[in-house]
Amino acid sequence: MSIHSGSHYAVDLQSVSASYGSTPVLDNLTLQVHKGERIVISGPNGSGKSTLLKLISGTMKPTDGTVDVLGLRLDNQLDRQRIRQQIGFLTQIQQDPEIAVSVCESVLLGLWGTRFSWGKRPAKADRDKAIDRLALVGLEELAHRDIRTLSGGQRQRVALARALIRDPALVLMDEPTTYLDSTAKEDLVNRIAELHRQLGFTSIIVSHEPLSALLSDRRIHLESGTVQEYREVQP
């Protein structure tokens, strides 16, 4: 384990390559993300966008290069587990979920592995925190509703509350606005931007859709596993 507590970077990838079996996905990629910075990564399907998030979240190991996240080098299982506790993760919307889960429970599940797991029950304080996070996205009144009864936009706001329940220093978002209608999309973008202002987390958003400048300080375009374009966004 190596810790670089003085690092200015939330994420520091150096000469990283990754592959699925014999198929290379990322090739010698170097990327540094400052603490509090907002990055949007775009690119076509298969360009390595989601692989990049898997490397940063520690669910995939690079074949070459180093991955440092929040000052911790992810070169063993223990460090990967430690870093996951400080990361929030927002996936693309789950379409037509079949499972009955209350909105509050759905948010609470974001604390798995930190406050409870395997038969250990969450405390009342954890439930209170779930309600608090729901209030951040304006859905506390729906806490006891079944998620299946919510609209797509509301379900994605619940997922955002879940991503924030760990008080993450880094939030990874994988296609967060895909399948949302334009109104829900705009609403979600505005909420993420506002919450970033309030909470100051670093965010890395992967999206094949053009996203509002509200969410990005820098834009990176990936193609065939390498950075094709790198652009600072003017305020």
Binding site: T59, R84, I99, S106, W112, G113, G119
Partner: peptide, 21 residues
């Protein structure tokens, strides 16, 4: 024993994996 782990897997497998389930 695995009440919340099963819920997480049924709800969102990708998220469950990132959380370490």
């Amino acid at each position: 024993f695995a009440y919340r782990e099963i819920q997480l897997v049924l709800l969102n497998r990708e998220l469950a994996q990132v959380l370490g389930v």
